[in-house]
């Protein structure tokens, strides 16, 4: 095995109207950015069900990006705000499950912001590369059963998971 640089796999969910078009623009403008991000188009960042993110991590992603229109510019008026709220909850949940904050990122990118999207991607790739592989899928499998893993998470993160009365 040669000494290879760790190349993370990052899944990005892009809204159809702003961010996917920002990716189109980055392409049209030939802006080079890290190849580690693979994109999935959804109609709106509000469509991103937190389970999509969990699924991506479970299938071996090292990071997940959710990109949508800027607040106030959503094609569906205000659904990116809902994405924002879910993102905050999700970040908290993932932290409790041992996933570092740097592995998930919410990025606003308007259809005119190809450059901004590309640099956000580069930044995130660097960040996740720094964090190293997540190995989530493997961790789950190692323990043999999901029950045990959940048990472990609960013990390790009891403090964060405590619900205030």
């Amino acid at each position: 095995m040669v000494d290879e640089r760790f190349e993370p796999k990052i899944v990005a969910f892009l809204c159809n109207w702003c961010s996917y078009r920002a990716a189109d623009l980055a392409g049209t403008a030939r802006i080079k950015y890290e190849p580690n991000v693979r994109m999935i188009r959804v109609m709106c960042s509000g469509r991103v069900d937190p389970t999509f993110v969990l699924k991506a991590f479970a299938l071996g992603a090292d990071g997940v990006m959710i990109a949508g229109c800027h607040p106030g510019e959503c094609h569906y008026l205000e659904q990116n705000y809902k994405a924002m709220r879910r993102f905050n909850m999700l970040k908290h949940t993932l932290k409790a499950m041992g996933v570092e904050e740097g592995r998930i990122r919410l990025q606003w990118a308007s259809a005119a912001e190809g450059v901004q999207l590309a640099s956000a991607i580069n930044e995130m790739v660097d960040q996740v590369r720094e964090l190293g592989p997540l190995n989530w899928a493997q961790n789950w499998h190692e323990d043999g059963e999901v029950e045990a893993a959940i048990q472990r998470i609960e013990e390790e993160h009891a403090e964060v998971m405590e619900v205030p009365a």
């Binding site: 290879e4 640089r5 760790f6 190349e7 993370p8 796999k9 899944v11 080079k32 890290e34 190849p35 580690n36 693979r38 999935i40 959804v42 069900d49 999509f52 699924k55 991506a56 299938l59 071996g60 992603a61 090292d62 580069n122 592989p133 997540l134 190995n135 899928a137 493997q138």
Partner: peptide, 30 residues
């Protein structure tokens, strides 16, 4: 969408994502 996520990570499942997507000798352009 789940199927799409599975497809896009086709080379990560089973593996742990620690390998470069390509067997490229050059580091990816910054």
């Amino acid at each position: 969408i789940f199927a799409e996520i599975g497809g896009i990570l086709y080379d990560a499942i089973g593996g742990n994502g620690a390998k470069a997507p390509a067997k490229s000798k050059e580091p990816a352009p910054a």
